[in-house]
Computed example of a mutant assay.
Amino acid sequence: MSQPISALVIMGVAGCGKSSVSEALCQLSGATGIEGDSFHPAANIEKMSAGIPLNDDDRAGWLDSLCAELRRVDATGQRPVLTCSALKLSYRERLRSALPGLGFVFLELTREVAADRVSHRPDHFMPSTLIDSQFATLESPVGEALTLALDASTHSVEQLAAQAHHWWLGHGLKLAS
């Protein structure tokens, strides 16, 4: 077995189901969910709401906040599960630098499915017009260490959470007794 996974990031483009899978996984594993979207500064939300994609500079402070929250939750003895698009390798490396043993569950889906899902999300700041920019930015993590890729187009939230939970158990997850 490779390095034990102490925490997870549920990652992928908008609409892949990060929040739903994270919530279901936390229920299965007793982990603590961290909703990455809630750490975006107002300027990022305004920019995305206006249909303007974020760039690396926009994401820098957000990623720093996520790193700090991962460390904070881990320091309390809880097992964090973070939802974060983590679209680029450099973003994933930044998160890994905050918490060694960080695993990634990549929820893959097609551009068409992502656009359809995002267009049907009420009350979310991310418009479907930004889907193309998400796919343009995405550097697939398939093949990276401590990464599990799952097909989010054909599996239910419960199936995805169960697969992630099983994988995490095989990579060091210790259930509370």
Rank of each mutant, 00 (worst) to 15 (best):
H165F: 15
A115F: 11
V157Q: 09
L25Q: 08
L169E: 14
H40A: 00
L102T: 04
M11A: 10
C16S: 15
S128D: 13
R121Y: 09
S2R: 15
L107C: 10
C67P: 06
R111Q: 15
G36E: 08
S38A: 12
V81Q: 01
I52C: 04
A86V: 09
L173A: 02
T154P: 00
H40N: 02
S49M: 02
L150N: 07
F125I: 03
M1L: 12
S128Y: 01
N44G: 04
T32K: 10
L8P: 10
T32Y: 07
Q163P: 00
Q134F: 10
R94C: 07
L54H: 09
L89V: 15
A161E: 03
S2F: 09
L160R: 00
H40W: 04
R71T: 14
A98G: 09
A136L: 11
G30W: 02
A75D: 10
S153A: 15
A114S: 15
D74F: 10
I52L: 13
D151C: 08
A60P: 09
S22G: 15
I34S: 08
E158R: 00
E69M: 13
A136S: 13
K174E: 11
A136R: 15
Q159K: 00
L63H: 03
L70R: 07
I5G: 02
S90M: 05
S22A: 15
S22I: 05
D74P: 00
K174N: 10
N44W: 11
A24N: 01
S156N: 01
P4R: 09
L8N: 06
R72E: 09
S90Q: 13
V21Q: 05
T137R: 09
R71P: 00
T154A: 13
F106A: 14
G36Q: 03
D132W: 01
S2G: 14
